[in-house]
């Protein structure tokens, strides 16, 4: 496979930002990533979704050269990760899963000293730190020690730190896990602003479906180290679930027969029946079910990515 694609007008050639081919990661004898292939285009926000232990972190750690690949091919900016890891890392910004800020340094120093790891001069680092602190609205806390920051502030600082080298690719491992809704929305706002920035590509992992729907242009859903599906959020929803979902609590036997007879796409959880409405007529279907078979607790709602996710990865608990 070549590292380039023709753009629609056929004028210039655009490289893939990430190109993974049959990528595997094996720990001792445990296969964490089991031969996955995908590409990320420039300027795109690409999501990796999956339950805990799916292999998301293992995948992205290979992409920024933190952990060596077991087999397969991996190119970032068209460069081979096993050879050009240093060049690649110089152009990548990473928010790792833990907030590993430097506890010995204050907020501003966390940015300035991190900049030095990229051989950015002190003077330049100072300027960048100030503009990034403004970007994440933490200017007023710049002399605070990082332990005194809230979870949301820490996360924003980690994000700012990942931007210190003006990366062409921003990698985020579960950027909003453990944050309260306010903080989460703040991080999303920052990410949306970055998304519109020209030339920046974003790779993020998450298990929040809302996050993926809001931010990702395209995504893959992974489980047990494999890719289950790939596509745009809206396409995936339409294709795997439909337009709307009807949820019925404590369904009656009659309803089950009705669903069988009408050949409706559904999932039976015992105490709850989930019916996937494929088309515009679903409203009428809901009326019919609500009138004839149910006394209470029948809901009609829009289908979401979460429905796709649960349908594909199953409903049993992980870890």
């Amino acid at each position: 496979m070549c590292g380039r694609i023709d753009d629609p007008k056929g004028k210039s050639r655009v490289e893939y930002v990430i190109e993974a081919e049959n990528l595997r990661k094996v720990f001792n004898n445990f296969v964490a990533v089991d031969g996955i292939s995908f590409q990320v285009y420039p300027g795109e926000c690409f999501g990796i979704l999956g339950p805990n232990g799916a292999g998301k972190t293992s995948t992205i750690r290979m992409i920024y050269g933190f952990s060596p690949i077991t087999s397969g091919k991996l190119r970032v900016f068209g460069l081979d990760i096993t050879q050009k890891w240093r060049k690649i890392r110089a152009r990548v910004g990473v928010c790792q899963q833990d907030n590993n800020l430097d506890a010995d340094l204050n907020v501003r120093e966390n940015l300035e000293i991190f900049a030095q790891y990229f051989n950015i001069s002190r003077k330049q680092a100072r300027g960048k730190a100030q503009s990034l602190l403004k970007f994440i609205a933490l200017e007023h806390r710049q002399d605070d020690e990082v332990i005194n920051l809230s979870g949301g502030m820490k996360r924003r600082l980690v994000l700012a730190r990942a931007l210190i080298n003006d990366p062409d690719l921003l990698i985020l491992d579960e950027p909003t896990t453990g944050l309260d809704p306010q903080s989460r929305h703040q991080v999303w706002d920052r990410l949306r602003e970055l998304r519109s920035k020209k030339g920046l590509s974003i790779l993020l992992t998450t298990h929040y479906m809302e996050e993926a729907s809001q931010l990702c242009d395209r995504l893959i859903i992974m489980d047990h180290g494999r890719i289950l599906v790939e596509g745009k959020p809206a396409d995936l929803i339409r294709h795997h679930v439909g337009h709307v979902v009807i949820e019925v609590d404590d369904p009656s036997p009659k309803l089950r027969i009705f669903v069988q007879n009408h050949n409706l796409k559904h999932e039976d959880l015992g105490h709850r029946l989930i019916i996937y409405g494929q088309n515009q007529d679903s409203g009428r279907l809901f009326q019919e079910i609500d009138d004839q078979f149910v006394n209470e607790n029948c809901i009609l709602r829009m289908a979401t990515l979460e429905d796709v996710f649960l349908k594909l990865t199953g409903r049993e608990l992980r870890e």
Binding site: Y64, R89, V94, Q96, D98, D102, F118, N119, R161
Partner: peptide, 14 residues
């Protein structure tokens, strides 16, 4: 505890 090396391994440092 501070995971400083992990953070550095996301930069051009080996």
């Amino acid at each position: 505890y501070q995971k400083n090396f992990d953070a550095m391994l996301a930069t051009p440092l080996s």
